[in-house]
Every structure is written in C-alpha cells, then in structure tokens.
Design a protein around this nucleic acid. Structure first.
Length: 512
RNA sequence: CGCGGGGUGGAGCAGUCUGGUAGCUCGCAAGGCUCAUAACCUUGAGGUCCCGGGUUCAAAUCCCGGCCCCGCAACCA
C-alpha cells in the first residue's frame, strides 16, 4: 500500500479559525483517520504561515515583536485544532529554523540552475497589499482593498522564471486528469495557462519589509510570502530526513479552498519543476461555505466559530453536518435549521435510537449477555449482513473520490435497514413466547454486530461516537475486535453495557 | 465582456463524469408497532428534472442554441 500524505493550507496568523478553516480540517482529518484505519502509512500536516508585512504590522500595533506575536497566534490555532480533535501528525510553522533553511536551500538551488534573475520592475504598488497592481485591477485608480492610490515605484527585485515551465505544466495537467480536482478547478487552471503566466517576483527589499526569510544570495532582500509558504509542504518532510521525504513527497495531496488555486496550481508546480523535485499527486480544491444563503464575512458578522458549535452539539455532530451537507468542490450552505434537522434525524433518531433500542432489549431480555448464533442464518439475517458488507465496500469508492456525503449516505442506508430489521423480526413480540427465546437472542446478536460494524466504519467520521459504541459493547480497543468477521465479534457469554443516550434530541422552539 | 457555479415534487438538496424504471431529508395525509431518545416501520399525494433543438433503441445525464439566478473588493478554507 502506498503511503498517504495529506496537507491543509497553512493558516495565515492574522485571522481566526472559522467555519471554513474548520471544514478543511475536518475533511483532511476524516481522510487521515480513514487511511490510518485501513492500515496505510499516513502523514497529515497542518501549520501556520507567519511571514509577511500584514503580520509585521499587526504585531507592531500590538506592540510586540513579530516572532512573539506569531508564537502566540500559532499556539492559539494549534490549541483550537487540538480541542476539535484534529489528529494532525505535525504542525509546521514557517518561522521554524528548519523551514527557513530549506526555503533558502531551494532558492539557492533554483538560482544556481539559472531560473532566478535580478531585474528592474516598475509599477503601481500598494503598500497595504504588499503587491503591484495593473491598471485594470484598480477601482477609480485606487487599490480596491485599501482604497488608496497606489504608488508608482520602480525597484529591483529577484524574479523566478516561471514562464519557462508553463508548457510543461500545461502538458502535465492535460495528461493527468486528477492532478487538480474536481474538474472545474482543473479547467480554471488550464484557463490561466492559456495566457502567458510570466515570471514571478519572489523578493521584497528589506527597505519595505524585513519580516521574512532572507534571500540567501542577497541580504538586502527577503522572500515573497507565497514562495516561502508553499515550500512548507516539502520542508515538513525534509525535517524528518531524506528517506521520509522520498517516501511521502510523491504521494502528496494538498487540500485547499478555491481562493488559493493559483499559487497551488501554477506557482507551486513550476517551483517544484525548477527545484528538480517531483510534482505533488493531487490538488484537491473545495468550495466556500455560505451562511443562511449569504456570503460569510467578518463585516456581515455571520462567521461561525467552530468551538461554539462544538460546545452546542459536540464535535462529532459538527463533523457529521459538515461532511454530510456538502459536496466536495461546491459551495455548501450552513443553515441553522439544517444543522438541527441533520442532528435530530440522522444522529438522534436513526443512529442514537437504534443503539438505544438494541442495547435496551439486550439488557432487558438477556441481562446484557450476548446469545449464541445458530449455524444457519435466516434470510433476513443474511440480508442485514449483506447490506452492511455492501455499504462498507461502496464506502471505499466514495472516499477515494472525496465524496464524503455519499459515504455517509451509504452507511445510513444500511443503518435504516437495521431499524427495519427490528420491526420485521419484532424481537419484542417474540420474547413473549418462551419457544422463541433463542431466536430473539440471535436477532439481537445480529444487531450487536451491526453496532460493532458501525463502531468500525464510523471511526473516520465520528471518532468519539465510534469509541463510545465500542465501549457500550464492552469490547477492548484494537483492530482485531473491530475487524472480526460478522458473527465472530463476541465471545460466548460476553456481556455488554446498558444503553446510553448518544445524541439527545434538540427540541426547537417551534416544537415545544 | 470574460470566467466559474447553479436552475430536479411545497422547502432544502443528491444524482449528471461512467445514458437505462427520478432519490434523500424535512413538510403533508393515512395506517402499523410499542423494544427505543414522542423515537421506529409501512403506504400515499405531490415532479413538463429551466426552455428549444440534436445524437441514441433509450437523455436529468451526452452535443448545440437560448433564458434566468448567484459569485468574481476585502477578511478568508
């Protein structure tokens, strides 16, 4: 099995985690957990992007040195992801000494191979944005961001011969259909490549900005933030040694939001080509959440704080909503009503209640002791088993295509089947007839296998719930218990625990 | 202008890549069950899959044309 390498964008430390960044983390965490559970060797990276003028400014306003400022914010990010149960393997910071060294190494290498040149560049520059503008981009001659007139400056900088690699990149994308996915974003990048991409200015004079990585061959300059930040994906592996790098790098899968397609789809691969490194495997681009149909923005004040939702409904339920309610690549909508409905319907009524009724009967009828299965299974028993086997099988295909909503849909359709199975077999009626006691025991045994199966397949999506299910079944932690074939999950005389309400229903005002 | 996304029963959506009886949740109507978190199960009403052409034995799905809606200043995934 090939190794799996998953990355998130590095979060820029002048913002706070919100629904969008949480979504990225939940998707990648789900995938990382999924692959780990399948036995793949997995490396999952996140971190913070800490250089650049904006950060230097905010730090100055707070009257602390930039490094101290980023230490603080970076730690805050980290602790939020920890609180959300995100299982990243490594948290990189672009201020890490190892990273700085590697960026400089790449710069030197690219410089030596002749792909960096020193040149004069004149243009309209906005100091607020730290970038040049073309006439076309301006609004009434002003920077659309800061609403100030850009300054005409002419300065000398270092440039990366990005244009040189344009054709090679286009060819790569054309011959590798899943290099950038979903397809819409691949087309978008191909669109960018239809026009000349030009060269990339990769330095900033220290006279304007000092908070960055120094250009190794000219101490008057620091590195442009994107050139610095993108390299993190490689430097995080390098820090663990050459062998580690060689093993994971070619398997890299980047997950990003649609706003940063260009740096990842154009800058980064051409940089890799110039540095003589293999290209990443996939660039996976997701959409932007809207909130109640509106664009999410700080000025509208409709941002969603992850820890707040977590406090209200729990992280598992939050994860469920994000994964079930979105289609990867599209712009999903975060609606309060949908959040509650999903919670009550799928989690409380279908999953929670199923577990509850099964464990209650097991307790009531057999004092919690699992009853033996007969050698022959009834037709409905086989169907129940087959339904789950099929679901688990289909799930793999959906995960490979990042179709999280379908993966969950598939599991829930099997879960519905289990609820139906209870009504069809009606153990609560049979139990009244002493002659049918053993059949009731079998039916409940199959239903416990359902719960055990759920505790396995839900691991990536609802990790806490999966663990709780296993604990309710009084099974030890470990793959052997989870992966045992259907019918062989419980030892003779095994006793399970009493039911527990996993997802208390949320009563809305209207229903009270 | 251009680029991207979307138009599917009352609401919100999936399905479109890989054509083959139109699916999910909510809501509505009727019924069943009583193990369970007033949960669960069954049945029903409700759809010109935006419009018009084309390809095909067969189109929500592929091709062509058109209409309408949303996004493309920033924060930001």
């Amino acid at each position: 099995m090939e190794p799996i390498y998953i990355t998130t964008p590095l979060f820029y430390v002048n913002a706070e985690p919100h629904l969008g960044s949480t979504y990225t983390m939940v998707i990648t965490d789900t995938l990382a957990r999924y692959y780990r559970a399948q036995g793949y060797e997995t490396f999952y990276l996140t971190g913070t992007d800490e250089h650049g003028d904006k950060i230097a400014q905010v730090a100055a306003e707070a009257n602390v040195p930039p490094k101290e400022f980023t230490d603080r914010v970076s730690a805050a990010f980290r602790s939020i992801w920890d609180d959300c149960g995100i299982t990243y393997d490594y948290f990189i910071r672009t201020t890490d000494a190892d990273h700085v060294r590697f960026v400089q190494e790449i710069l030197s290498r690219v410089n030596e191979s002749g792909d960096i040149y020193f040149g004069k560049y004149g243009g309209l520059y906005c100091f607020g944005c730290e970038r040049f503008y073309t006439e076309k981009e301006l609004r009434d001659g002003k920077c659309p961001d800061h609403l100030v007139k850009p300054t005409l400056i002419e300065e000398e900088n270092y440039f990366f011969r990005m244009g040189k690699y344009q054709d090679r990149l286009r060819e790569h994308i054309e011959t590798h259909a899943d290099f950038i996915r979903p397809e819409g974003y691949r087309n978008e990048v191909l669109g960018m490549l239809r026009e000349p991409i030009g060269d990339l200015c990769i330095s900033r004079p220290k006279s304007r900005l000092t908070w960055g990585i120094e250009i190794p061959f000219d101490d008057r300059y620091v590195t442009y933030v994107w050139f610095d930040a993108l390299i993190n994906y490689a430097s995080a592996l390098k820090q663990r040694g050459e062998e580690f790098f060689r093993k994971f790098w070619p398997e890299a899968q980047h997950f990003i939001g649609k706003d940063i397609v260009k740096p990842h789809g154009v800058f980064w691969p051409t940089m890799l080509m110039a540095a003589g490194l293999p290209l990443y495997k996939h660039l996976n681009v997701h959409g932007f959440w809207t909130v109640e149909g509106q664009k999410m923005s700080k000025s509208l004040g409709n941002t969603v704080a992850p820890l707040e939702i977590r406090a209200r409904i729990g992280m598992d339920a939050f994860r469920y909503f994000l994964l079930r309610e979105s289609v990867f690549g599209q712009d999903p909508d975060f609606r309060e009503e949908a959040l509650i409905t999903r919670y009550n319907t799928d989690l409380a009524n279908n999953l929670g209640n199923l577990v509850s009724r099964v464990l209650a009967m097991q307790q009531k009828y057999f004092n919690g002791v699992v009853q033996p299965l007969g050698s022959e299974w009834a037709t409905e028993d086989k169907q129940l088993h087959d339904k789950f086997a099929q679901a688990e099988n289909d799930l793999h295909g959906h995960m490979a295509e990042l179709q999280f909503h379908r993966a969950l849909e598939t599991i829930w359709s099997a879960l519905d089947h289990a609820n139906r199975y209870i009504v069809q077999t009606a153990p609560f009626t049979m139990i009244k007839d002493p002659a049918q006691q053993s059949r009731v025991g079998e039916v409940l045994h199959h239903l416990l296998e359902v719960i055990r199966t759920l505790s396995r397949v839900l691991v990536p999506f609802l990790p806490d719930t999966a663990r709780e299910l296993r604990e309710l079944l009084a099974l030890p932690d470990g793959k052997e218990t989870l992966n045992a074939p259907w019918g062989q999950g419980f030892q003779a005389g095994h006793k399970i625990n009493a039911p527990k309400v996993l997802f208390p229903r949320i009563e809305t005002e209207a229903k009270k």
